[in-house]
Design a protein around this nucleic acid. Structure first.
Lengths: 143, 143
DNA sequence: ATGTATGCAAAACATTTGCACCTGG
DNA sequence: CCAGGTGCAAATGTTTTGCATACAT
């Protein structure tokens, strides 16, 4: 049960928070990571009464608590994903926004080297590879 | 003379465009990459009469023409840098926003491998390492 | 009860667009 | 001269905030 996670983060266990956590857990996996608006729509569609502002507030709190990660890929909206602890980078399809996660130890190691040889104490890093995924590649022409 | 670049891109050689190009050329190098607002301020401060909208319009045209690259680092505003042809990635100081550019062939190679083994046709990629630079590290405490 | 969360509306930003006027070739 | 460029103001899209009400403990 993840209501524990909420309590641990000093956040009351409320319905909106539980619902948002649940959505992140279930519809997050291999497909799209979610925007605040996505989550808002899903909640509305499933009959919940919630405000977009609350979604943003909750996501921001979750981010501060280390429960979710906020990404700024291209295209205005930030996307959110549950922080499952295992760091990874992203492949983003520029056609359909499909996201594939990956980890590469060689790259991870190299990054640390680069940072320290530039005199930086690395705090974080983001590697995003943009491209056209297999699906979109085959189905020629689409928006 | 880079008025050539403008003509080549099908853009009239106007004062605002020249000025913006000049700013990108001179104050771009090792320090901060510039936001549209930065450029706007610099122009106003140097006595030019220009609108922020024009700065955005020009930068967008420059981007389309391949003259500049737009980056979406953390923190709202996009930053722009001249495209000098040599691809590179970025180390960003989270304290002072100083930017260091770097290239690592191993990482470049690995990225291609990762993309193709995931069935993606890579179109672009962005690697950003966030950290605290030497300067900020030493001068303990600062905003 | 009581301090925190929420919903709504309004504010705050970053960026884009419409339009009348100006300018480069 | 005339298409394209510019400034200004208004529109947009995203995220944040103020405030009165509702809820978890």
């Amino acid at each position: 049960m993840e209501s524990q996670d909420l309590k641990k983060a000093g956040l009351k266990v409320t319905l909106p928070r539980m619902k948002i956590l649940e959505i992140l857990e279930t519809s997050n996996a291999d497909t799209h990571h979610l925007t605040a608006e996505d989550i808002y729509r899903i909640l509305l569609d499933s009959g919940e009464e919630i405000g977009l502002a609350t979604v943003y507030r909750v996501l921001t709190q979750f981010e501060a608590a280390g429960l979710v990660i906020r990404h700024h890929f291209e295209g205005g909206q930030a996307v959110f994903e549950l922080d499952r602890g295992r760091h990874h980078d992203h492949l983003v399809c520029v056609k359909c926004s499909r996201i594939v996660e990956f980890v590469d130890d060689t790259i991870e190691r190299k990054q640390k080297e680069i940072a320290s040889s530039a005199g930086f104490k690395m705090t974080d890093h983001a590697l995003i590879i943009y491209g056209v995924c297999g699906n979109c590649e085959s189905s020629i022409e689409r928006r």
